[in-house]
Design a protein around this nucleic acid. Structure first.
Length: 510
RNA sequence: GGUGCGGUAGCCAAGUGGUUAGGCAACGGUUUGCAAAACCGUCAUACGUCGGUUCGAAUCCGAUCCGCACCUCCA
């Protein structure tokens, strides 16, 4: 079955075939780094990270270019507020964004060009557009601007399905609000803007200035990937005008189709509204990492198809704690998967994976898991179905663990079930890989989640250990009233105690 | 006004013409000193509303209601 992806350009799910067999050129619009990256950015980049992992798992060689917008009016304004150099601010925020995206499991793109180091390409592209009659220079009080002439490009609106006359009404109204009109047509957009009174800018044939927002992506895509790419992606909010303008610039210049496929991720919402910096309702990735495990966040994101809206809940508890219930639930599922893997590993006990003739139903789930995940992703990255495969695999794994003791008396059967357990461990890793889940060593996962949950509850492991030890003493003395009292006391502060044959352990409630 | 997206059982969420999605919660079991975890079972013949097409519709067509986004910077 071929890889199938939804294409915004055609509004259909289509078979994906790259221009060069086996090689995929992917360009993803990156972040404007004037502030911390938020959970909505995280969702989009997680989607494309899964796309990359999946395409590679399907045997494609993927070049993934994702830009960093480090030159922009918002950066200049924010820097001014803080009394900082614009490029110093964007460098700092860019590094934090990279760090936070890496933390939530997004692999580093193959290339991450910046506007500040692509000025030559941007100037070159702008000049070519002027020469072709697609752009023109306009005089402003500060110097020279360059605008793209939208009406010179016949295909304008093909991605976002807008017609120029509908757009014009809105654009005219905006102009009445007081902007200086140096454009020949209200729809025209800037390729180059003269430096403002702040003086921040780069040298160019039109004097000191800086690029418009859209031109950078055209220049970077050309430079890093060439004039025709296979997939161009970003958030839903970029369809218009950003991607529409990119198409106009790039295609007017090269005469080639910029991208065969256009993919757009849906929004992360809070209270049914888009999470956005401009609305002030955002939760940063840093906030998420404070409260939840990064893989829990990833599981949460992948639980909804990438094109649909995903609602991010925030809950304020009576005791003053603020939690993200959706992330907590997802994190419990990660606990389940890691715990299942631990149980399988200890059952396998060094045994080699195999396909033994035992526990047929479970063995079938184990054998088919990886391919079923890939098949789910074949269908326009259907990650929720992929996660349902993980759920079934986890259940099969626990069933294997549960059945094993019954086979202890028969060495051949027990050996077989250990082989199956080893296969299940391997299947879990293989099924999770294209999703970027279970990337941590189990010990590391338990260590980091425990440390974080203790911190959030304001608890110390030593205190809990002492109470659990006291309870163990009470249990040995058959003083169950006291043991239960201690359990209740711990439960009240969010600690669950459970007893096993080899002693008691505890866990912080999420 | 223009352009899109979405409304599926208590909650979250797949499914685009005909055979179990999956998860959470709740309840009943197995297990346990009691619990928890894990597993089994129930909730589940659910698909915003009204019409139409069809042997058959959550799925196709028409109308309509509701929510959201984009049309200005936005992942």
């Amino acid at each position: 079955m071929p890889v199938r992806l939804y294409n915004t350009l055609t509004q259909k799910i289509e078979d994906f075939v790259p221009a060069t067999p086996g090689k995929v050129k992917l360009y993803v619009c990156g972040i404007t780094v004037y502030d911390l990256a938020h959970a909505g950015h995280g969702r989009t980049y997680t989607t494309f990270d899964v796309l990359v992992r999946f395409l590679r798992a399907r045997g494609f060689e993927v070049s993934h270019c994702q830009n960093v917008t480090d030159v922009d009016d918002k950066i200049v304004n924010r820097a001014k507020e803080r009394g900082e150099e614009p490029l110093a601010l964007s460098k700092r925020m860019g590094e934090l964004a990279e760090e936070h995206l890496a933390a939530i499991g997004c692999m580093r793109p193959t290339s991450m060009p910046r506007v500040s180091t692509t000025i030559d390409g941007i100037v070159d592209l702008t000049q070519r557009l002027i020469q072709k009659g697609s752009a023109y220079v306009a005089e402003t009080p500060h110097g020279k601007d360059v605008y793209y002439s939208v009406r010179s490009f016949p295909g304008y609106g093909k991605l976002s399905r807008r017609n120029l006359d509908d757009l014009r009404a809105g654009a005219s109204e905006r102009l009445a609000a007081g902007a200086v009109d140096v454009k020949k047509d209200p729809l025209d957009f800037a390729l180059w803007k003269a430096a403002g009174p702040d003086g921040f800018g780069f040298d160019s044939p039109w004097g000191k200035g800086r690029p418009g927002w859209h031109i950078e992506c055209s220049a970077m895509a050309f430079k890093e990937l060439g004039e025709h790419i296979d997939i161009h992606g970003g958030g839903m909010d970029l369809v218009f005008p950003h991607h529409e303008n990119e198409i106009a610039q790039s295609e007017a210049c090269s005469g080639k189709e910029l991208a065969r496929f256009w993919m757009h991720g849906g929004f992360l919402e809070i209270d049914s509204e888009k999470m956005a910096k401009s609305l002030g309702n955002f939760v940063t990735i840093k906030d998420v990492l404070e409260k939840n495990d990064p893989e829990g966040y990833r599981y949460f994101v992948l639980g909804t198809h990438y094109r649909g809206p995903l609602s991010f809940d925030v809950e304020k508890h009576d005791d003053g704690r603020v939690t993200f219930p959706g992330l907590d639930e997802a994190e419990r599922r990660m606990d389940y998967l890691y715990a299942t893997r631990d149980a399988l590993v200890s059952l396998a006990d060094g045994s080699e994976p195999g396909e033994p003739n035992i526990l047929q139903g479970q063995a079938e789930v184990v054998a088919g898991a990886k391919e079923r995940v890939l098949e789910a992703l074949d269908r326009d990255l259907n990650t929720p179905v992929a996660l349902s495969v993980l759920a079934e695999l986890g259940k099969a794994g626990n069933e294997i663990v549960m059945q094993a003791p019954k086979m202890k008396k028969d060495p051949a059967k027990h050996e077989a079930v250990r082989k199956l357990a080893a296969s299940a461990v391997r299947a879990l890793a293989a099924a999770c890989a294209p999703l970027g889940l279970m990337q941590a060593e189990p010990e590391a996962y338990w260590k980091r989640t425990k440390a974080r949950r203790l911190r959030l509850r304001g608890l110390a492991a030593a205190d809990i250990d002492a109470k659990v030890a006291a309870r163990t003493e009470a249990r040995k003395a058959k003083d169950f009233a006291k043991a239960d009292a201690i359990r209740k006391e711990l439960a009240a502060v969010g600690v669950e105690v459970f007893d096993a044959a080899d002693g008691s352990s505890w866990k912080i409630t999420l």
